[in-house]
Each structure stands twice: as structure tokens, then as C-alpha cells.
Write a protein that binds this DNA or RNA. Structure first.
Length: 270
DNA sequence: ATATGCACCTGTGTGC
DNA sequence: TGCACACAGGTGCATA
């Protein structure tokens, strides 16, 4: 579910509501996430005040004082939602942070591919390997050319490689390649300057459009207030196999790259 | 360096 | 109705 636009949507909806809030109580109902939640998680978090939430790729960082952070990754099915403390727990609510003002920040994740951990920036190995953020930096044909130099793999695989660029997942890789009119299987180091320029522009426009519409709610994505996004209505390629291309009407094709469903228009994307 | 498969999980949709 | 199977927004590891 959550790629950069969804994670950024959650950050933006939570930020004004949790800024400065103190964590009164920590309840962990399930410790077996992607990484086991450590035994000292509750005691290290209790009593801390949450600062300005940051995002790095698909990771959220909640400053908790003393140069320490609560690091959150939503995996495939995770959500982070603010609810009234009076609400009964739901299935797959794994972690609840009781905040001042009778509100709970709840981490829910049916598939448990998500991750929560505490640490200083330098101690979080997850963050050490991720690449530049596509929303925070200026993306040009030159920048992409440098990043793609000598990389012979399909451009879609590289777009989804978090060490190369952080935050792009399967939905948005497909969408930006459609908007840039580039076939997903094209070798990254063989793209022409004109195509790199189109991709840089598509990367910016797809991600900013998706953030503006509150992300894509394919089946169940919700923002920090439990509301759905609207970018799923704009999807031109993702999950549209057999449906007509919005530009030319040709049926969208599905292929598998790196084990992931990939969608493209055989006429628009060369 | 690249390519593939699998593992980790639960939920949903499909076809029989 | 039940059952088997494929597949899903992600990541990391093992194997060629």
C-alpha cells in the first residue's frame, strides 16, 4: 500500500496533530513485525514528546528527544492512524501510543511486514542505505544519467531500488514510466537524453500529483485521520491490464519484472 | 553486477 | 458451500 505519496500523506495529516504531544503510555500487542520489537521499546518511549515528523523515502521518523527517533515503515499493509482513546482495538492493531488529549496513535498492519524501532540516526541501518528523495531534490536528465550509468537492468527495477532513489514502489514506477512514455523493460543505461528528461519530469509530476490527491487508496490505504486518497482514480497504467490506454486506447499490457506486475501501453511506451 | 526465487504474513478474489 | 490457488502497495537474503 504505502509508497512515498502515501507515507507523505500520513506525515502531513499527523504532523499538526501530534507535534509536541507527550506519549503517556505505550501498548505493544504484537512484537513480531519485520523486526521483533525490542523488550525495552515501551520504557524508552514512555514520557517522551514527539517532535516534527520527518520522512526519508518510505520511512517516517518521529523525533522523541535526546537525538533519538521512532522509526516507522509501513511495509505492504501498514497504517498509522490517530484515533480517540475510547475506540476499541481492531484486529491487527499492533502498537498504540496514548497521547495527551485522549488520543491514540495506532499502528495497524495485517501482514506484519512493517517495522517500528527506536534509535539515534546513525544507529538505524535501514536509513544508512537509502538513496536520495525524489520530492526533496531537483531531478534532471543529468542527475538520472549519472545514477543510471553502467546499470544494465530494466529502468523500472532501478526506479524501485531504494538505494538508488528512495520512495518509489510498484504503483508509481509504472505510472511515471507511462507518463514519460518509456517501456518498463528498457535498459536504464540505454535511455536517451530526451527520455531521461521526460522521466525526471514525470517523476516530479506523478509524485506531486499523488501527494496532492492524498495518495492512492487501492483497497484500504487511509491517511492519519482514517480518510482515503484519490490518486487511484488517476492511475493510467497500474493494475489496468486489458483496459484501454487513456492516451491512445490500446489495451494496457501486463508483464512481470523482478517478480512484480508491470503495466504499460505497447503503443505509447517504447 | 544482474536475475530469479523465496521468505516473511494475512486478506481477497477467482475458478472449480 | 468449501477448497485450492494466485496475487497484493515491500524488503532482504540465498542462489545462480
Amino acid at each position: 500500500m504505502p509508497e512515498l505519496p502515501e507515507v507523505e500523506t500520513i506525515r502531513r495529516t499527523l504532523l499538526p496533530q501530534v507535534r509536541g504531544a507527550r506519549v503517556l503510555h505505550v501498548e505493544v500487542r504484537e512484537r513480531r513485525l519485520r523486526r521483533l520489537i525490542g523488550p525495552d521499546f515501551e520504557s524508552r518511549l514512555r514520557g517522551r514528546a514527539l517532535g516534527e515528523i520527518e520522512r526519508r523515502g518510505k520511512y517516517l521518523l518521529f523525533p522523541i528527544g535526546g537525538a533519538e527517533y521512532l522509526l516507522v515503515h509501513l511495509g505492504m499493509s501498514g497504517t498509522l492512524e490517530l484515533r480517540s482513546s475510547a475506540q476499541a482495538p481492531r484486529p491487527h492493531d499492533h502498537v498504540r501510543l496514548r497521547l495527551e488529549g485522549e488520543r491514540d496513535l495506532v499502528f495497524n498492519d495485517p501482514r506484519r511486514f512493517g517495522l517500528l524501532c527506536l534509535g539515534a540516526l546513525g544507529d538505524l541501518p535501514e536509513l544508512a542505505r537509502i538513496g536520495p528523495d525524489p520530492l526533496c531534490e531537483a531531478w534532471t536528465a543529468e542527475r538520472l544519467r549519472a545514477l543510471f550509468r553502467g546499470r544494465r537492468l530494466p529502468v523500472k527495477n532501478l526506479l524501485m531500488d531504494q538505494r538508488t532513489i528512495a520512495g518509489i514502489g510498484n504503483i508509481y514506477a509504472n505510472e511515471m514510466l507511462h507518463r514519460a512514455a518509456i517501456r518498463p523493460r528498457r535498459r536504464a543505461d540505454r535511455l536517451r537524453r530526451r527520455e531521461l528528461a521526460a522521466l525526471a519530469a514525470a517523476m516530479r509530476s506523478v509524485l506531486s500529483d499523488a501527494v496532492r490527491l492524498g495518495g492512492s487508496s487501492i483497497s484500504d490505504f487511509r491517511d492519519g485521520n482514517g480518510r482515503s486518497g484519490y490518486f487511484q482514480l488517476e492511475l493510467a497504467a497500474y493494475d489496468r491490464a486489458g483496459e484501454p490506454c487513456r492516451s491512445c486506447g490500446s489495451p494496457i499490457r501486463r508483464i512481470v519484472l523482478a517478480g512484480r506486475s508491470s503495466f504499460y501501453c505497447p503503443r505509447c511506451q517504447r
